[in-house]
């Protein structure tokens, strides 16, 4: 139970941090914000890697493989496209 409460605490505090930062982001950058935050939500790749690599259960391994593929597209594609967009914003002042 204690571990669970700590996790909930972390979750709630991070939501507050998120609100504080995101409300300061100008509307001009809302599309890069979506694609960039989307790439960050690809963090689930950490779980995917564990599932694919633990080698305990065949089903879990293939589910993990699928998760690794989807999460990698999310991470790699997400950060790349965000970079592409933001570079356009930076070109001229």
């Amino acid at each position: 139970m204690e571990a669970f409460l700590i996790s909930v605490t972390v979750f709630v505090l991070a939501v507050f941090v998120g609100f504080e930062i995101i409300t300061k982001i100008p509307s001009t950058l809302h599309t890069p914000l979506m694609s960039g935050s989307n790439a960050i939500s690809g963090i689930t790749i950490v779980g995917a890697v564990v599932a694919a690599g633990a080698g305990e259960n065949e089903v879990a391994k293939y589910l993990g493989l699928g998760a690794v593929v989807l999460a990698t597209v999310n991470v790699v594609g997400g950060f790349l496209i965000t970079n592409r967009m933001l570079a356009m914003f930076r070109r001229k002042k």
């Binding site: 996790s7 709630v12 779980g47």
Partner: peptide, 21 residues
Amino acid sequence: TGFVLGNNVLIIAGSLVGASG
């Protein structure tokens, strides 16, 4: 998923994105 794995980095990153959206 962070709660599933007991992994804080997933919880933090996920909640940041959740708040943003």
